[in-house]
Amino acid sequence: MQKLLLWPAVVLALLVGCSSFERAPLEPPQVIGGDAKGPMAEVQVSLSDGAGIAALLNKNYNETTTSCTQYGTGLARGYYWCTGVLVRTTDDGAFNPWESSPTALQLHGTSYSWIRHDLQNAGLFKPAGYVILSPADAAANTVPGVTSFANAVQCVYPLDAWTQRTMDRSHIGCDFEGTGLTVITSPWGSCENRLGYSNSAQWNARFESQGRVIYRQCSWGADNQQGWRNMIASHNIYTGISQYNEVMLTNWGGTGSLPLANEQYRKSIPAFFYDVAKPGGLAIAQSFQRKMFATGRRVPILRLSFTAAAAQRFQFQQADQVAGQYP
C-alpha cells in the first residue's frame, strides 16, 4: 500500500535505474462482462439502484465459499474472483481516483485491499475509495454496463506490505525488495514460487524470524486458493500490526495499454465508499462521484462501517449523493 509518494525515488529511478526495467510488452487488459458469455445473474442491479448495489456487496462480503472457478474454462481462481469485495482507498486531487499514482505506474502495480466477513478488519488505509466488481459478477452481467478483468490481480499479502517503499520489487510488486522492477504479469507469489511455502504456519514462522517487519512479508499468488486461506489465517493473527491486507493489480503503466486500462478500471467501478470512522471521507467520496459523473456515468456512494453488523457492512444513504439521480 502506498505510504508516501516517494518522488525523489521515482526521479532517481528514471535517471539512473532504467537498466533494471524489463520493457517487454504487456498483454492488454482482458475485459470480462457485457458480452453474455457467462450465466446471467438471477437478479440484476442497476447503477442507479444504490441500495441494490449495497445489497450486492454485502452479499459478496458475507460469502463463505472456499473455491472460485472461471466460467467456461474450469480454471481455479483466487477468492477475488467470486467472493469478498476488492477495494482501493486513495486521495482526492487533480486526477481521477481510478488512475494509478506515479509511483504505482513505475512499479506497474497498484495496491488494493480485499475484505470479507471472516477477515478481521477495523479499517482501511485512507478514508475513501472505490470498489472493483468481481469477475464472476461481471461475467454474469450482475450490474449491466460494469465490467471486470481476467488478468489484473497478481498476488495478495496478509498485511500491508509497503510495496512502494524501495521501488525495486519484481512481479508487479509481488516479489521481495531488491529483486528489481522486472515486469512479469501473471499470478505469482513469493511464498510458493520463491520459498516453496504451502501453509500459514510457514508464513507466520518467517514473519516472526524477520522481526514482524511488514515489508519483509512474502506474498501468495492471486489464483492460489490455499494461499487465500493462508492469508486470512495469518492476517487474523497479526491484525494488530496491520488492519488491512494488500492485493497487487497490474496497471499496465508505461505501455500502450495504459489508456485502455484506465478506461476499463473506470468501467469496473460499481460504487464509491467512505469509512464512517475516518474524518473527511464523505467529502472525498463525493468528489469522486462528481468526477465519475463528469465522464457520463453515475455511480453511488456507500457508507462502509466496520462496526455495523456484517450484513450491513455497506449502506446506501440518499443524503450522501451529490451527482446523478437516485430514486
Rank of each mutant, 00 (worst) to 15 (best):
T295E: 12
F293N: 08
S268H: 01
Q210V: 13
K291E: 10
F306G: 03
S234H: 00
M248G: 05
G256C: 09
R206D: 14
Q289L: 04
R216N: 14
N236T: 09
R206Y: 11
G221Q: 08
R303E: 12
S209C: 06
Q264H: 06
P259F: 14
R229G: 11
A319L: 11
Q318D: 15
Y244P: 00
Y274V: 08
I237Q: 14
G256K: 15
L302V: 10
T295V: 13
C218T: 03
E263C: 03
F306Q: 07
G240E: 12
Q312V: 08
Q243M: 12
E246Y: 06
P259A: 12
E263I: 07
W252G: 04
N262H: 12
K291W: 03
G240Y: 14
Q202Y: 00
Q243D: 13
A271L: 04
L302H: 06
S209V: 07
F316T: 07
R298N: 14
R303Q: 15
N230D: 11
F314T: 08
I241E: 10
S305D: 15
R216G: 10
T239R: 14
S200I: 02
C218Q: 03
M248T: 01
S305C: 13
G196Y: 10
W220R: 03
A261W: 05
F293R: 09
F293M: 04
D320R: 07
F293C: 13
K278W: 09
G281A: 02
N262K: 12
W203S: 04
G256D: 15
Q289S: 03
A222G: 05
R303C: 05
N204V: 15
E246D: 00
R290Q: 12
